[in-house]
């Protein structure tokens, strides 16, 4: 199992690892002390996923273009 820091993982990676952690724990073939470490890892992964899910916010902006068609900046878009 990869022991990458959870906050470096993408949502999808955290999700996949959380699933495999839960599967491993449910199979019950992990040594007790390892299963405690596994549980702690699972709790971290779950928190990582939940944080990402909580962070959901909508922000819409349109790119403003110069005369040459190159992007110059952003302007907020509302009411759509």
């Amino acid at each position: 199992m990869s022991e990458r820091p959870v906050n470096e993982m993408s949502f999808e990676e955290a999700m996949k690892e959380l699933e495999s952690v839960v599967d491993a724990l449910e199979r019950g073939d992990v040594a007790l002390d390892a299963s405690i470490a596994l549980y702690e890892r699972g709790a971290l992964l779950k928190k990582r996923c939940e944080d990402e899910l909580k962070r959901a916010e909508e922000k819409v902006a349109a790119i403003t273009l110069g005369a040459d068609g190159a992007p110059t900046g952003l302007k907020p878009v509302e009411g759509l």
Binding site: M15, L18, E19, L25, G28, I36, G42, K46, C49, E50
Partner: peptide, 27 residues
């Protein structure tokens, strides 16, 4: 779908706790 993922995360949390607890209980 965010709501589905939230439900999934909760379910995973539940399974995680249950699995850990049942691991201890079985032992």
């Amino acid at each position: 779908v965010r709501m589905e993922l939230i439900a999934w995360a909760e379910a995973m949390g539940g399974r995680l706790s249950r699995a850990a607890a049942s691991g201890v209980r079985q032992r």
